[in-house]
Design a protein around this nucleic acid. Sequence first.
DNA 1: CCTTGAACCTATAGTTACTACAGGTTCTAT
DNA 2: ATAGAACCTGTAGTAACTATAGGTTCAAGG
Lengths: 142, 142
Amino acid sequence: MNNVKYSIGQLAKESGCKVETVHYYEKIGLMPEPPRTEGGHRVFALSHVKRLNFIRRSRELGFKIEQIKDLLKFIDEPNHYCGEVRAMAMLQARAVQEKIDDLQRLQLALNEMVIKCKGSNNSIDDCPIVDALFTKKATGQQ
Amino acid sequence: MNNVKYSIGQLAKESGCKVETVHYYEKIGLMPEPPRTEGGHRVFALSHVKRLNFIRRSRELGFKIEQIKDLLKFIDEPNHYCGEVRAMAMLQARAVQEKIDDLQRLQLALNEMVIKCKGSNNSIDDCPIVDALFTKKATGQQ
DNA sequence: CCTTGAACCTATAGTTACTACAGGTTCTAT
DNA sequence: ATAGAACCTGTAGTAACTATAGGTTCAAGG
């Protein structure tokens, strides 16, 4: 009884992305090809809205498209278990922590540079930041 | 008296990047066109090594190519002051902090999901992670 | 019913910062 | 002299979209 229909514009707004992004997701097979009107316009159902929300939310959480494909496979196909999804989430959490660590090292380096530099109008030749940038490695690479 | 010469391979190794990356930097104007041998091979000097190190280090610190162009402009042109560089470094530090904050919120969400999910082999239909992913917004976007 | 303009359609190119390849030339060491 | 490593140019590919062009369809107002 819930057969509300959505145009692509409504769908996009509903999930906070652009129409072109929906096209893109369809092209790469993340979103299914929906039915069309006589004239060729796409017509979406609530299930599409949910699926797109899932995708967008997963992207926000830093999952890559390929990972999301895997997650959706879990959901689309029967015979999958919660444990598999949990494992992916844990992997993702670990990757995120590594990114955070990297950035914090980076932040430290930047702040040190800024503190050492009195700024104002001494010449560029005496700038400790420029100096630091000419020096090799100190942070983990990105 | 220090006129050591470097091949592009040596230059790349010296700065920890690939030969193709040097070509690329030359093409986009980050690195100057160096002199060549009779046969057309590039010949670099120590100044090139230093400049490339500067670029690579800045990239490690998260500066975008366009920002590095600005930094190099400060260095290449006279009449610039340390203060300008300092300001850019501070801006960069702020941007990095924002990224860190985002990722930490993300981390929180992921960990919550993992904790709520007992994993094991309950069906995907009861998975709290899948559930959470179907729900809208909770983290800042990336 | 007709018109207007918003929303839609497809297909292609652009974005960022590289990386990878193809097909050919030069350099270096034996 | 020759083998093979390193170099050359130019083009295409990567991720995840975004933007544009040029045309069609839809919904609302007159």
